[in-house]
Design a protein around this nucleic acid. Structure first.
Length: 244
DNA sequence: AAACTATCCAACCGCCTATAA
DNA sequence: CTTATAGGCGGTTGGATAGTT
């Protein structure tokens, strides 16, 4: 299993506050020490592991090893087709928010899901984004054509009703997210707060980028909003309109 | 059989946020 | 209020292995 030469080559040594941390693959003995620590002290306070067990690993490394490999509730084995469909669906909705996706798949880690998605779907996404780019170019050409006819309208301010429609679209995504968060009973209150905070700031950014892109590309807002096809196409290919 | 490519996956890094001091 | 620290997250790397040419 272990190639000693490769392991030695892989290991490096870091100096942190007079302490030398081991890096690279974990040995069975290190795993045993970490499991013993969790059995006695529970999860958390990972920076105490080195002091209390003699393990020459920093807190981050210990936490990662526990979360991704040693946790007893981890599900081993291949991702099932059902799990795969969940991953695809949630990724389409949330993007690369792996920890959030992982909460919907008990026994699977964010790292596992991330790795799985990258090897199985990253290429497809790239292909899709190529098609996405072509579709976007088509849309731009058509917009340029319409622009001539709509120049006068563009000089006017946007109709507040249209802005309301944009906000409604974004709110819809927001609501979906909140419902899922509410269902996620395993997430701590802190995590939920963090997710919500992150989502709010991301949503704000997304709104900004969406609106600015619509503006800079000379999109005519009413047309975008009236053509469900365009939004649907974006959702299907990139998951979210702001991933164009 | 050797070289090459794709896939898997453990582990690290840097950044960000929450919380304690 | 400010600063330091711990923990969490997503991105990335690189070795091992399997499959293909």
């Amino acid at each position: 299993m272990f190639n000693l030469r490769a392991m030695v080559g892989h290991w490096s040594w870091g100096l942190v506050e007079d302490e030398v941390w081991r890096k690279g693959p974990w040995t069975a003995e290190e795993d045993r020490l970490l499991m013993e620590y969790v059995r006695i002290y529970g999860e958390g306070r990972w920076n105490s592991v080195a002091r209390l067990t003699g393990l020459k690993r920093n807190g981050k490394s210990c936490r990662l090893r526990w979360v991704n490999y040693l946790r007893p509730d981890l599900k081993r084995g291949q991702i099932t087709p059902h799990e795969e469909s969940i991953i695809l669906e949630l990724h389409a909705r949330w993007g690369n928010r792996w920890s959030m996706i992982a909460r919907s798949l008990p026994g699977r880690t964010d790292n596992e899901i991330k790795n799985y998605w990258r090897t199985h779907f990253k290429k497809k996404e790239k292909d899709s984004s190529d098609a996405n780019g072509k579709a976007k170019a088509r849309l731009l050409r058509r917009q340029q054509f319409h622009q001539q006819q709509l120049q006068q309208q563009q000089q006017q301010q946007y109709n507040p009703m249209d802005m309301n429609k944009i906000m409604a679209l974004l709110e819809e995504e927001h609501d979906k997210n909140n419902i899922s968060e509410a269902l996620s009973s395993s997430a701590s209150e802190t995590e939920k707060r963090q997710n919500t905070t992150n989502f709010h700031s991301q949503t704000a950014n997304n709104e900004q980028s969406l609106l600015s892109e619509l503006n800079t590309n000379g999109f005519v807002l009413p047309e975008i909003l009236n053509e469900g096809l365009e939004v649907g196409w974006a959702m299907e290919l990139g998951g979210c309109p702001w991933q164009w």
